[in-house]
Design a protein around this nucleic acid. Structure first.
Length: 129
RNA sequence: GCGUUGCAUCCAGACGGCCGCUCGGCAGGGUUUCCCCGCCGGGAGGAAAGUCCGAGCACGGCAGGACAAGGUGGUGGGUAACGCCCACCGGCCCGCUGCAGGGUCAGGGAAAGUGCCACAGAAAACAGACCGCCUCGGCCCUCGGGCCGCGGUAAGGGUGAAACGGUGCGGUAAGAGCGCACCGCCCGUCUGGUGACAGACGGGGCACGGCAAACCCCACCUCGUGCAAGCGCAAGCAGUCUCCGCCAGGCGGUUCGCCACCUGGCACCCGCGGUCCGCGGCGUGAGACGGGUCGCGCGCUCGAGCCUGCGGGCAACCGCAGGCCUAGAGAAAUGGCCGUCAGCGCAGGCCGCGAGGUUUGGCACUGCGCACACAGAACUCGGCUUACGGAUGCACGCAGCA
RNA sequence: GGUCGCGUACCCAAUUGGCCUAAGGGAACGGAUUGCAAAUCCGUGAUUCGUGGGUUCAAAUCCCACCGCGACCU
């Protein structure tokens, strides 16, 4: 078991239509097959996660299931999230219609996406400086 | 034993460990509208769904009534109410020798009115008569009959979803409720029933085709919008109104006291500044009202509530007594991982019952697979409808044995 | 969460309860025309009228229940 206990509080969630729009419209996207990840550096002290999942994905029970798995992935992988540089990010995951995957698969997608997005933002801020 | 149809009831895998979310309570800490940490307790459904009905509740409207529009439709009961539920009545279907029985029905009114009834058929809705049948008269005749005419008929033919009661006997020129019997129908009276209706008796030869999920008539019901209803709080931004000085000038009104408006200066006030002076700004100040937007709080969970017992009722349901508190989120909580245990299916093994066998029973036996469906509260209830896994019981069907 | 609307062929779509074997247009296909095309002309259809029940003699049409799609309040 890892040293620190991993939590996922309300303050680590993205809320409000404006916040979502900012992140999604920010340039920088990573596409897994059924998920689409967006990132934007934020002004707070921690990474935040927002999940966008439309009606076409399935019934309310299935949408809840996928959201829970994604939040659990985010919570359990916090130790491996990018640190420093452009700062903590706001991540938004857009879910496309698909059969629900396992927790391990969502974790793998999420880590790959975060690594890619972090590298992309580091490169961009480096050019600017 | 299997099947699955119908009905009823119940469950919605359990337990343990670790991590996490949310609400409430208690205690503590911090940078004290908030955040953090700890402990204890609560945390999805039978459909939470579809949003098809009925209510509560909120705001707006409203004397009352009528019209319009929409809905409901056998009778009686249940209910806060309903288009729901229960019981009964009636029609239709299945079944039976028959009686029972089962299923099903949006089941008021067609002798208030209007409309429609295609095609076919002579004729499709005050009846009428195509092919026919028959008397009589006339003509012809090969003496069977044929043709024409005045009439009488509706049994037979054929069409249609539907043709103006049905069957039988009598009757007749041929026929016809023309007469009779039975069935059906209509009217009246009586009896039973709260009633829908049912039964009996009497009368009438029989009129009243179907469609109202066509318009319509009758009876009853319905104001509109919906918790994103709505109430409150604070902040910034429009707008409206009121109040708040002095002096000068202009313009207008005037009861010659003054009043209103505009412009300028000073003061107040604001900014610069530790303070004064000074400089700059000048409807700049105060109050009230207030629209939408965003945020927060309330609405928000104790209710036509749940459980148990007793009593009433054929039942739906009701009454009484005792006990219980049982989710309240907000990009939206009840989740994730691991293990164990039943449980289920398949294959194999062993044992048992039996003469044998399709079949069948048992197992701390082995292996593999599944461990599960439909589905997530969003103000709250009562129903309906739809989706769906399993267990038990009853009924039904099939097979085996006795 | 709430309130509405729509569904007819590949696409757009019309249709007083009855001559519906469902109008019409585009597209597609075949033919004519042309040196070849376009345009034009002629012809060609496999629609359970979203699904399932019901009313009626008769339903795309009327009624009910489902399914799918879309819009609005925000």
């Amino acid at each position: 078991m890892s040293a620190a206990r991993l939590r996922f509080r309300r303050s680590q969630r993205i809320r409000g239509q404006g916040s979502f729009r900012q992140v999604v419209h920010a340039r920088g996207r990573y596409d897994a097959k059924v998920l689409s990840f967006h990132a934007l550096p934020n002004a707070s002290t921690a990474h935040r996660l927002g999940i966008s999942i439309g009606r076409k994905v399935g019934t309310a029970a299935r949408r809840n299931r996928i959201k829970r798995l994604l939040r659990e992935s985010f919570r359990l992988t916090q130790a491996e999230h990018p640190t420093g540089a452009p700062g903590p990010y706001d991540f938004v995951v857009v879910v496309r219609p698909h059969e629900p995957l396992t927790l391990a698969e969502y974790r793998a997608h999420m880590l790959a996406a975060f690594a890619y997005l972090d590298a992309s933002w580091r490169k961009r801020s480096g050019e600017r400086a």
